[in-house]
Amino acid sequence: MRLASKDILGLQEMSTTDMQLILDTAESLKEIISRPIKKVPTLRGKTVLTLFYEPSTRTRTSFELAGKYMSADTVNIATTTSSVVKGETLRDTARTVEVMGMDVVIMRHPISGSCHYLAKILDASVVNAGDGMHEHPTQGLLDMFTILQRKGQLKGLRVAIVGDVYHSRVARSNIWGLTKMGAEVVVAGPSTLIPPYIEELGVKAYTRVEEAIEGADVVNVLRLQLERQQRGLFPSTREYSRIFGVNRERLALAKKDHLLMHPGPMNRGVEIASDVADGEHSTITEQVTNGVAVRMAILYLLLGGATDEAAD
C-alpha cells in the first residue's frame, strides 16, 4: 500500500483510501509512543525538515518527535533563525534544502497555496503543516483519528465545528476529511467569520452556536485567530465569548457522550470555557498524542519503502 501522491497538501485532494491508510497506520504506530524506549529504526538515514514561517509549538514539535521516534534525522528552520528574515525567496530556500538532501519538507506558511507552490519546485515530499487559511491536513487527520479512537467510526456522526471558520485551515481540513468519511458536519460562528459558499463544501452553517451543537457527537472548537483578524469582524472578545463561546450550558445540548475538541492553543474564556476544556468530555490532550501517531504514519507512508524493484 502506498499513498497516491508524494505530497500531503490537503484533504480536499486526498482519497478516502489514502485517509483510511493513514488512520490505520497511525493506529498501529500509536503503541510506540507509550513504550519506555520510544524509537523504531524504520526511517534511519532519512532527513526530515520542518520549515516554519509562522510560530508554532505543538505542530512543529509533534512532527519532530514523530520523525525522531522513527529514527529519522530532523532539522528545523524557523523564520527567526534563517535567511528567511533576510528576504530570501521561498524558491531559493527550497533549492537550498533540496541540495542538502532533505527527504521530506514539512512547511507551515502564512500564505494559502504555498505548499502547493513548494511541491511544484521540490522532488522531495512536501507535507502541509498549515498554509494560510487553506488547509492543515495533518490536524484534520489527527482530529479524525481521535474521534475514531473514541467513537469507533466516523460515518453517521454529527460533528459541530464552532468559531472562526473563516480564518481556519483546521476547519477546512476537518470538513473535507469528515464529510468524505461519511460524517455530518455543521459549522457555526458569527456571520462575519463564516466564509461565503461554505455550504458548497457539504456542510450546514449556522450563526447560532446552539443549533450546531444540538445533538452533536463531537464539538470541535476553533481557535479565535486574533492575529489574523482584520479589524471589525466582531466587536469584542467579551461579546464573542458571551454569544459564541462554548461553555457547559451550550454543551448540554450535545449528546451525553459527546467529545469536546480544540486544536490548540486555546484562548481560555474566549472561544472555550476553562471548566469544559479541562472537563471529562475533553480530548484536547489526547489530540496531542494522536497528532504524533498520525504524523509518524505519514512519515512512514511517505518515506518507508521505495519504488525500485528488488528481490525479497
Binding site: Q12, S112, G113, D131, G132, M133, H134, E135, R169, R172, P195, P196, Y197, I198, E200, L201, Q230
Partner: peptide, 19 residues
C-alpha cells in the same frame, strides 16, 4: 476589496485566499 487576491466566492473559501 481589502487584501483580496482573488474573487470573493466559492473558490476563495475553498482555497483560503482572501477575496
Amino acid at each position: 476589496a481589502g487584501e483580496g487576491v482573488i474573487n470573493l466566492g466559492r473558490v476563495s473559501t475553498i482555497l483560503g485566499l482572501r477575496g
